[in-house]
Every structure is written in structure tokens, then in C-alpha cells.
């Protein structure tokens, strides 16, 4: 891989991670928060693949497969919990948690 593509990939990864972090800080809907976290995971994935190409070893690619599998499981658990939350509250805005504060 050329040097310029390598750097471009890393910059894209950093950008995705930043968008994810900002989303986590500003978004207030549970699904949006979840999507922001997925962006952060994908930023890590991209960085892993890029570095794996750079070093010419396969470990980074393997790690990405594991991360994607775990992220899928995470989505399963997460969405189930959101459904449980939605059933009792009829909305998913996390800043309106009136029972838990502080």
C-alpha cells in the first residue's frame, strides 16, 4: 500500500473516531448513541486493517473479524435492552432518566 493511502486511511479512522466520540457526548437518543459507538468500533477496525497491511502481517485482520463478531453480539444484547426500555417508557431519550440522577 502506498504511503499516501496509508496516511489517508489513518486520518479517516481518526475522523470516524472523533465523530463517534462527539456523537456519544451530544446525542441523547439511545439508538443514536449506539450508532456512535459502532462508528468508534469501525474506526478501530479501519486502523487495525491499515496497520496490518503496513506491517505485512495478518493479525490485524483477524482482530477485525473478532471485533465485528463481538459488535454483532453487542447489537443483540443492546437492542434487546432498548426494547425492554421502550416497553416501559415509550421513548428512548436517555437524558430523561428520572429515576437515576447523579
Amino acid at each position: 500500500m502506498g504511503e499516501s493511502i496509508f496516511e489517508a486511511n489513518l486520518i479517516l479512522s481518526l475522523f470516524l473516531f472523533t465523530v463517534g466520540i462527539l456523537g456519544v457526548m451530544w446525542k441523547r437518543n439511545a439508538i443514536s448513541l449506539f450508532m456512535s459507538v459502532e462508528l468508534m468500533l469501525n474506526a478501530a477496525n479501519l486502523a487495525f486493517v491499515t496497520f496490518a497491511f503496513q506491517h505485512g502481517i495478518i493479525d490485524g485482520g483477524i482482530l477485525v473479524l473478532f471485533i465485528m463478531t463481538v459488535a454483532a453480539a453487542e447489537a443483540g444484547v443492546g437492542l434487546a435492552i432498548f426494547i425492554a426500555l421502550f416497553r416501559v417508557r415509550r421513548h428512548l431519550r436517555v437524558d430523561e432518566h428520572d429515576m437515576l440522577h447523579g
Binding site: 456519544v24 439511545a30 459507538v37 435492552i81 426500555l85 416497553r87 416501559v88 436517555v94 429515576m99 437515576l100
Partner: peptide, 17 residues
């Protein structure tokens, strides 16, 4: 149920981040 699902949502989102 309300307390449980709210607590789980908060814990899970922060854990995932």
C-alpha cells in the same frame, strides 16, 4: 422493570464506549 432497564441502558452504553 423501569429501574432495571434504565440502569442497564446507562451501564451498557458507557461500557460499550
Amino acid at each position: 422493570r423501569r429501574m432495571g432497564s434504565e440502569g442497564a441502558t446507562k451501564y451498557m452504553l458507557q461500557g460499550m464506549v
